[in-house]
Computed example of a mutant assay.
Amino acid sequence: MSSVVKVIEVIAQSKKSWEDAAANAVKEVAKSVDNIKSVYIKDMSAKVNGDKITVYRVVAKISFVVKKKK
Rank of each mutant, 00 (worst) to 15 (best):
F64G: 03
I53T: 15
G50L: 10
F64S: 04
V29Q: 08
I53A: 15
G50K: 07
D51L: 14
D43R: 10
K31S: 10
A21W: 02
M44Y: 04
A21V: 04
V26L: 12
A12D: 02
E9Q: 12
K61H: 13
V66F: 03
V66G: 07
I53F: 13
A46W: 10
K16G: 00
V29F: 07
M1D: 04
K42W: 01
A30D: 07
V5H: 05
K31V: 10
K37R: 14
E19R: 04
G50V: 11
E9R: 12
K37S: 12
D34S: 09
A46I: 01
V29R: 08
D34G: 00
V65E: 13
N49P: 01
A60Q: 01
K6D: 08
S63Y: 00
K67P: 07
S63Q: 08
D43V: 02
I41Q: 04
Y40S: 15
W18D: 00
V29S: 06
M1P: 11
V10H: 12
V39K: 11
N35H: 03
G50Q: 03
S45Y: 10
E28L: 02
F64D: 01
F64T: 02
G50P: 12
S17F: 04
R57Y: 07
M1H: 06
K31G: 07
I62Q: 03
K67V: 04
Q13A: 11
V29D: 06
K6N: 11
S63G: 09
V55N: 14
M1N: 05
D51H: 09
K15Y: 09
V58G: 02
K16C: 01
I53E: 10
W18E: 03
F64E: 03
K70S: 11
A12E: 09
R57N: 07
E9A: 11
S63H: 00
K69G: 06
S14T: 09
A22E: 14
K16S: 10
F64Q: 00
K37G: 14
A25T: 09
K69Y: 10
K61A: 13
V33F: 00
S45F: 04
M44W: 00
R57C: 10
S63L: 07
I11C: 01
V48T: 15
S38A: 14
N49R: 11
S63P: 03
A22C: 06
V58E: 02
R57D: 02
K31R: 13
K70Y: 04
I53L: 13
D34L: 05
K42E: 14
A25H: 09
A22T: 14
K6C: 13
D20Q: 12
V66H: 03
A23R: 14
I62E: 07
V4F: 01
K70H: 08
